[in-house]
Design a protein around this nucleic acid. Structure first.
Length: 289
DNA sequence: CACTTGACCTGTCCGC
DNA sequence: TGCGGACAGGTCAAGT
């Protein structure tokens, strides 16, 4: 799913549902989805109470009072779906039409809490994972050592934005936006949406983009990320929030998944091409190569 | 070193 | 209706 706005939406939902709960049981059916040893899980997870839910880049962190944290990456198709005490886990649940009976064939990890409510990690493509780390070691995970700044943090300025990108002058701007070491949290949807907003062609080399255009991109990126959070993220296929509900951003999208539809600015038909190895949506008139 | 491609998986859609 | 191929929100490792 899951770019910054989707993971943030899940974080807010989980904060509402599972803070203060005690983990009573864990099960998983796919080693790569939850690679920690069983003994480790027993020692540091069972009986632990959830103290906080955090997000960094596209990664979700569930902090426990054992000073361990669950570190979760949803990759392309991951879901974290909560079902409360007294809610049906299958037939009868209000979200059945979307998610259906849980666990389902995509469920890789299930956490059961002491009040019998449950949290399901579903992941059709099995790229995602849940790992257990000592909370203090989380910042030392290789990914976190390399990842760039949060684009929505209050102290992330347009000057800092330009400086980060100028470290990759010979890369095309789309690849640079997707590179988590440059800035955190941007994926294919919001890369395309923000480049359309700034009228920049995705293949343009970073060094050939003016400071003024980069300032516009900074503003457009923050605009689309904030709007997407407000709309509960984008549900292109699998993404759902902690309640199992879809996000609404794509009804507002200007180019993503809108090939052959009119550009909202100039009515030219949106085209789909391939840039940086990814499906890429542009207006051929507004975004000149 | 910087940049690109393939691999990791399952499922769906599209053309023949 | 079946089958092969391309493609899907993300990262890594390996290749050039």
């Amino acid at each position: 799913m899951p770019e910054l706005p989707e993971v943030e939406t899940v974080r807010v939902g989980l904060t509402q549902f599972i803070i203060g709960k005690t983990i009573a049981g864990v099960s998983h059916d796919w080693g790569k989805s939850f690679p920690n040893a069983v003994a480790e899980v027993q020692s540091f997870l069972i009986g632990a109470k959830i103290t906080a839910i955090r997000r960094r880049a596209k990664v979700l962190l569930i902090d426990l009072d054992t000073e361990y944290s669950l570190v979760i990456h949803l990759k392309m198709t991951g879901q974290m779906v909560y079902r409360g005490t007294g809610e049906a886990f299958g037939a009868g649940h209000p979200n059945d039409s979307l998610i259906g009976v849980l666990p389902n064939k995509s469920t890789r990890v299930t956490l059961e809490f002491s009040d019998s409510s449950k949290l399901f990690f579903n992941d059709q493509r099995k790229f995602g994972w849940v790992k257990l780390f000592p909370t203090l070691e989380v910042p030392n995970i290789d990914f976190f050592m390399k990842v760039g700044p949060e684009p929505l943090s209050a102290d992330f300025t347009q000057v800092a934005f330009r400086e980060r990108f100028l470290r990759r002058p010979n890369t095309n701007i789309k690849a640079a936006l997707l590179d988590q070491r440059v800035i955190a949290g941007v994926g294919n949807i919001y890369a395309d949406e923000s480049l359309w907003g700034a009228k920049i062609h995705p293949s343009t080399l970073v060094k050939n983009i003016s400071a003024q255009k980069m300032n516009t991109l900074y503003a457009e990126l923050r605009y689309v990320l904030n709007l997407a959070i407000e709309k509960g993220g984008s549900s292109d296929r699998n993404y759902v929030n902690a309640e199992g509900k879809k996000g609404n951003y794509l009804t507002f999208a200007r180019v993503f998944r809108r090939e052959n539809q009119p550009c909202p600015r100039c009515s030219t038909a949106i085209i789909k091409t391939r840039v940086a190895g990814r499906g890429t949506h542009t207006c051929p008139k507004c975004q000149k190569a």
